[in-house]
Nucleic acid binder design. Structure first.
Lengths: 156, 156
DNA sequence: TGGGTATATATGGGATACCATGGGATTTGA
DNA sequence: TCAAATCCCATGGTATCCCATATATACCCA
């Protein structure tokens, strides 16, 4: 399965609602998640969002530290402190919270970008900049030019 | 397993639809993929399209990086950001999106070119130019004139 | 062998369903 | 009690479904 693919830009209405792209809703439904899990990305000015697949990925990170340790608590607090679970209304829309607004700079438009197992929520202009940057970086990664980057295996 | 072979040129109708060549549809059906996976080719002004076989090749590159890391995010955005999953209607047609139009220069005709495990979507004129170039290169390779490409071997 | 018919494919177009979006009405919560 | 969130319905635009037709290919039978 392809998961979340492609990107879409939708308008924010006067009440702070925005339609989640229908293809993304279909992926969430298939994943069997009620609503949405959203967490501020640690790397960039975007919000990571998704269903069970994203949630279990994050949970897996936490599980690398045994519970009852300060490390575990600190990480849990850092992760879940910037998380929320927006509701999806009957028309497939979600509310953009103040936390999301602050992290992303979103005002009147929202870009949804598919990353396979999750998608990201961006302010459209920042998305364009970030994607241009990501493309350059991807080129380097795929050519195996970046040291410390796992095992490229075979170049394209 | 022949995969996608030969090439076909079909007309784009007023609604932006084009028939996927029947032989290609047969390959997709055998592959068991719902719809189609399409990604802008990094090398040339064409779109790579296919089913599970193409998708898993892309997925394989991503799997070299662990999720939730900046590298993975950047690569996912670069790859999936220029991807889409067009639907195939009951008559075997797909829509040509704006993204595909911009990348390829397609206006009223579409050339589908089989490349075995995937096929490409071209603007007919550009396809002819590209193929002429590819033929020269192939000839050189087969003649053993290019160092580093010793044994052609004849793949399926 | 030749003619005629059946099947498949590409393509066009009307009708329908879906989707993003706006706004009123009702509920919730502090 | 007021503001905010949720539900519900309306609408315009677009994609999808479904049927019709033309053309080419395969098939059959005399």
């Amino acid at each position: 399965m392809a998961g979340f693919v492609s990107h879409f830009t939708n308008r924010l209405d006067a009440k702070g609602r925005v339609s989640i792209p229908a293809p993304f809703r279909a992926v969430l439904a298939r994943d069997g998640f009620e609503g949405l899990y959203a967490i501020a990305s640690p790397h960039c000015g975007a919000i990571d969002a998704g269903g069970n697949e994203l949630l279990s990925e994050i949970q897996g990170r936490l599980d690398q530290f045994s519970k009852l340790t300060p490390d575990h608590d600190a990480l849990a607090m850092a992760l879940f402190g910037v998380s929320e679970t927006p509701k999806i209304d009957s028309d497939g829309r979600m509310m953009i919270s103040d936390m999301v607004r602050e992290r992303t700079g979103i005002t009147d438009q929202v870009t949804f970008a598919g990353l396979g197992y999750k998608f990201q929520i961006w302010q459209p202009e920042k998305f364009r900049e970030h994607r241009a940057e990501a493309s350059k970086r991807a080129l380097a990664l795929l050519s195996g030019l970046v040291p410390g980057a796992a095992q490229p295996g075979e170049p394209a």
